[in-house]
Nucleic acid binder design. Structure first.
Length: 117
DNA sequence: GCCTTGACCGCAA
DNA sequence: CTTGCGGCCAAGG
């Protein structure tokens, strides 16, 4: 497997329950900025021990995929972890987005109720 | 080894 | 709000 895959999987494994990350953010944190698309392929070839359901698109929605079944399962698992979806299948990304603990960078976004870009 | 697709992203019209 | 365009990389034909 490529290093990109391993890096992505390792990062996804670190995502706590009830939190999510975007493809672009994962690619960036894994050391491959701009390779969001490759992250999608990494998810497709992901081993079962990778919580791929915590990976969502960058606009706070579950990415539409060919497999309706796993998409449904992803939403179900996220709801089980406390993520609330609206009627349009979207959710407030900035309330659930997980920022990897880097150095001493204080991470907010814990139910602050405001945007944090 | 080239060409097409795809669980993507950001910006512009 | 919806479309369109370019970029980027990996897999399959």
């Amino acid at each position: 497997m490529t290093d990109l895959y391993e890096a992505v999987w390792a990062l996804v494994r670190r995502i706590p329950a009830g939190r999510v990350m975007t493809y672009g953010q994962i690619a960036d944190e894994a050391g491959y900025p701009g390779r969001a698309r490759a992250v999608g392929f990494a998810m497709r070839h992901a081993p079962p021990d990778v919580p791929w359901h915590r990976v969502v698109s960058g606009r706070g929605i579950v990415s539409p995929r060919p497999d309706q079944e796993s998409m449904r399962e992803q939403r179900a698992r996220l709801e089980q972890e406390g993520v609330r979806f609206d009627s349009e299948g979207r959710f407030p990304l900035w309330d659930y987005l997980w920022i990897p603990p880097d150095d001493g960078r204080a991470q907010r976004t814990c139910g602050a109720g405001g945007r944090v870009p």
